Amino acid sequence: MTDEIDDVVDAVMTASRAMLSVVARSLAAAGEHTGGDTAGDVTLPQYRALVVLAQYGTRRPADLARALTVSASTATRMCDRLVTRGLVARTRTGDDRREVAVALSPAGRALVDEVTRLRRAEMHRLLATLPAAERTAVRDALRRFAEAAGEVGETDWAVAPVPAEDGAR
């Protein structure tokens, strides 16, 4: 059983490297497509923060840190850099001036949308090379894997329309 699981782990690790490459290429290409270099300056951890904000909306930096499994100071520095790049907006949340929240700015949302579009296009191209039965098996296995990891389904956040009254998403 251990050898079988190790074989699956090896396959998943290889596939995850391939998927990470797709994300990195999409992030780099998004800067070229938008005519700016903002996307090219965004690291993969910073992009992950943007994705979390796209998925869950406005967050306190401490909540973002928990979602990213980084320290609060790391999340604060990350937010500072994303605010400087215009990808995240910081707002005060109450009477206490120290209490802040961060949300995607329109530029941040546009970046996540563009990277998602580019990722989907490349994934479509790659998956089109597989026979239909293999695509179905990949789909089913990856859905179960994502569910086990606690990930939200793609159509539940990335391509779903944003309600007009929810500017924080």
Rank of each mutant, 00 (worst) to 15 (best):
A107C: 07
R60I: 03
P61F: 01
V70T: 03
A62S: 11
S71H: 04
L82T: 03
A49G: 12
R98Y: 10
G108S: 10
Q55G: 04
L64G: 02
A65C: 00
V51R: 14
R85M: 14
A103S: 13
L50T: 01
R60S: 02
S73T: 15
R92W: 00
A89N: 11
T91M: 07
R48K: 15
L50E: 04
Q55P: 05
A49D: 04
R59L: 12
C79L: 01
A103H: 13
Y47I: 06
L53T: 01
L68E: 01
L104Q: 09
G57E: 01
R98H: 12
A75S: 11
V112G: 05
A103C: 09
V83M: 06
A65Q: 00
T93I: 11
L104R: 01
D96L: 04
R66V: 05
A54E: 11
A110R: 14
L111G: 01
S105G: 09
A49I: 10
R66I: 07
R98S: 08
L111C: 02
D63M: 09
R60A: 02
R77Q: 10
D96S: 07
V102N: 07
A110M: 12
S105T: 12
T58H: 00
C79R: 05
E114F: 13
T84F: 14
T74N: 06
E99S: 08
G108I: 05
T84R: 15
T84E: 15
R66S: 06
E99V: 12
R60G: 04
D95H: 09
L104D: 13
A49W: 02
G94L: 10
R90C: 11
R97Y: 00
S71T: 01
T76A: 13
R98D: 04
L64P: 00
G86T: 02
R98L: 13
T91S: 08
V88A: 02
M78I: 15
V100Q: 03
R97V: 12
R109S: 10
G57I: 11
L64V: 10
V83N: 14
V112E: 08
E114A: 10
D113A: 14
R81M: 05
V52R: 14
A72Y: 08
D95P: 02
V51H: 15
P61I: 00
A103W: 04
Q46N: 06
